[in-house]
Write a protein that binds this DNA or RNA. Structure first.
Lengths: 240, 240
DNA sequence: GCGGCGTTGACAACCCGGTGACAATCGCGC
DNA sequence: GCGCGATTGTCACCGGGTTGTCAACGCCGC
């Protein structure tokens, strides 16, 4: 991948500068815009590989920019940077159209992880692979993070917002053991008041939906006294 | 993980001293700085594993220090210590680029929790190295410390927390003869009440999992009348 | 109000660490 | 080489903490 071009559309000065710096030092070719109008202009004229798009913008909001980009049949991948909560319903209602989204506040690590995943997907799509943006296969299930759907053996099943966010987090940190606090911070947000047991509850629900045998989970594994560990391909829960 | 180095950049005397003390007694190798300039200097020259960074600093504020650190491609993890009260949105920009952040006032408990998480993440995921970090080969087995998992000739099994901690200690002190008390202090914590025999029990369990022939251990060797000795490559337990 | 979702408390099921008992082994003096 | 006490290996079991699961509640949008 030779120096991908990235467009940052973000009005908040400090964050934009930090993003631009970080991306440049990672070797990206960076464009920036502080409002929606200018952002759309640049997106259309420069056709960058990737757009980082804030939703709350002066002059033209993120949704409108995103729609315009998509209507123009632009190939750019779009990662939305949204503040927690508020926009969820709109995002979901709109079919979204973004390739991924990151909830503020986020870390460089997290953002780069998502960017890498998205770019890889885009790149891999060229040879005509049936890899569709945002779709991930887990055992006999398919999750589509850009359309917010979930199906198991072809049959459509619903995942709620929290379930989806939890699943996404697990997926992003596959293989690592994640303690409840860390999961809670990521999925529920910092400074959250709820019991760590809430995490268990949602793990339970997820297991019921995506495990073949919820009683013998092969994907969401519990590590006693520590937390949970996710495996996409599935593991035998063999004792020892 | 042997004695991680931590740099504390904090101008407020009392807090800095308290932090330094607490960290030292936790076994960290601690560096300290009372202003941003000195902090950056130390960060660049010493390249510690972890930096605890206050945002409001004399001479050079935390944001600037963080950017300088990142521009230097330093691998250090950074945890930002921010005061509550500043508007969240502005802080967001500052915190971007950090690996984690804690809001003042915080408890040492919370801080240590975050530090552990961050260090573990860093250790287990060097972005440049496709080589699986955080994994250690012992004879014909591979132990993955970040997944609490254990693999022997393709077959995977889990390790419990104590087993993992014991194994980690043995690994860190390979070749040395360790008496039970030393092991107990390290793994179970000082001032622990349990019988020295508890150590034996866990050695037994570990042997069963990682030795090819648990009856003739090649890695966890017993030194009669003294304690145990660990060998990563494996030794013949042949008598003479 | 109804239904879905998120959360909580309660309780059951389970796992793991630790213990005591006993067998096996070792070291040492003979 | 033998025997004995000390040390270590091993087993079964218990108790406490952790996790799984259910039912109920509050909240919100319809």
């Amino acid at each position: 991948m030779t120096k991908a071009r990235v467009l940052v559309i973000e009005d908040e000065e400090a964050l934009r500068l930090a993003l631009v710096d970080a991306l440049r030092s990672e070797g990206f070719d960076v464009l920036e815009a502080a409002d929606g109008e200018r952002g759309l202009e640049l997106a259309l004229s420069e056709a960058p590989e990737l757009v980082l798009l804030d939703l709350m913008l002066p002059k033209r909001d993120g949704f409108s920019v995103l729609r315009a980009i998509r209507e123009d049949r632009l190939q750019s991948a779009v990662i939305v940077l949204s503040a927690r909560g508020e926009e969820w319903d709109r995002i979901q209602g709109f079919e979204f159209g973004a390739d991924d989204y990151v909830v503020k506040p986020f870390s460089t690590r997290e953002l780069f992880g998502r960017m890498r995943a998205v770019l890889q997907r885009i790149e891999g799509k060229a040879p005509g692979l049936p890899v569709e943006a945002g779709k991930v296969t887990i055992g006999e299930c398919v999750v589509d993070f850009s359309a917010y759907t979930f199906e198991r053996k072809g049959a459509r099943a619903g995942l709620s917002r929290k379930e989806l966010e939890l699943l996404r987090f697990l997926l992003d940190h596959e293989g690592q053991v994640l303690d409840r606090m860390r999961i809670q911070d990521a999925v529920w947000g910092r400074g959250n008041e709820s019991t760590p047991r809430t995490v268990d509850m949602h793990v339970l629900k997820l297991r019921r939906k995506l495990e073949r045998e919820p009683d013998h989970p092969r994907h969401i594994l519990t590590v006693h006294g520590v937390g949970y560990r996710f495996s996409r391909t599935g593991e035998d829960a063999r004792r020892s």
